[in-house]
Amino acid sequence: MNGIHDLGGMDGFGPVPYDGGESETFHERWEGETYATFVATLGNRFASIDEFRHSIERMPPDFYLESSYYDRWVTALTRLLVENDAIDPEAFAARAEAFEAGNAIVPEYEEPDMLGRLAAGVADSYATDADEESPSFSVGDAVAVRNAHPDGHTRCPRYARRARGEVVAHRGTHVLPDARAHGRDGAEPLYQVAFDGAELWGEDAEPGVSVTLDLWESYLKPADAGTEGER
């Protein structure tokens, strides 16, 4: 989907809030708890990593931009857990109000084997392995990114569409995020494709810049195929 998350090449977001290279930690305890809730959601196989990313992308654009990073995670996890009947939305809403009012505490429950089990589920949710498909493109091929605008999840950034680049590596066959984000099976050859800066950003592009992307086969076509008949 052409969502607000697809930020490459946009203008107007101002300076980067660079902090001088300090090591990153969770700034507050709830951010770490959010990470643990993410581990529980993927680890219990309520959602794949692609469904999680897509759940973030489904936030209304204004809300995406005004939310902090882990706030977006909480919203995305809530959506997935409700949609998969892992939690009851009424019970959730009531509990959230209780916490806001200071009338609830997180229950204690110890289970030493839990994290290992969850970690295995998380690893599965990220797994990209698939039976090898024979690749249509080879290293050195000139390719063009299809001008496709799917409604659902995709890992093809908008700024690369219609651009011509060169295949610099074949990465093997990887699970297709566009499929897994919607509960479907699918895997395709994955390629590293390099684009010249001027191809992406026009004649005023900074000189001496290239951008590489990892793109699945269905995102690409031969560069000499032209643009007519584009689906």
Binding site: T37, A96, V106
Partner: peptide, 8 residues
């Protein structure tokens, strides 16, 4: 997130 965590 504490509500989610508690229910889980």
């Amino acid at each position: 997130v504490r509500a989610l965590q508690s229910l889980l």
